[in-house]
Amino acid sequence: MSNQSESPNPTSSSNKITLKTSDNEVFEVEEAVAMKFCTVKQYFDDENNNNVTSGTSTTLIPLPNVESHPLAILITYCKKHLEIKANNADNKKEMEIDMEHYEREFLKNVMPQELTELILAANYLNFKEALDFFCRAVASAIQNKSVEYVRKFFGLESDFKPGEEEKLREEFAWSFEGVDED
């Protein structure tokens, strides 16, 4: 996945907004994309209110809580999201089907380990659709998986005293029905 923003589209009338991540990467994104990030939108609106005279395009918005890696993924997701929405403006069902299809493909390129940082980034940016999508992805990565699998893929370690875990496993024996083999 490219870390750089796409080359400017001369036909587009929309403004570009520049986002600067915590690791000092700069992303130039279309306004429509940036406005899906509510945190960015709010900042942008506040800026505009403070500075009505500024008619020119580029605004640099710092994102000190977001690294370039998740941001690049979120931008890609967001662009596709907007595109699918625009393509099916009058057919909600078609849109949902397309979106589902895209999301399934999308997840093939995302490691479970990446989901945490994607969620944190989407949460900070207040990008609701992505946040919901990644949370659902985590849920389906946990569903029917063994405790060991979930620990391994989501960086968790057991800190129970010897015997404690066994006791819990006994207590929750009913929850192990239908768990997949690792």
Partner: peptide, 12 residues
């Protein structure tokens, strides 16, 4: 529910 319950064994 059972998948949610199973997360109680992940860690303290």
């Amino acid at each position: 529910t059972k998948d949610a319950a199973r997360t109680s064994i992940l860690s303290k």
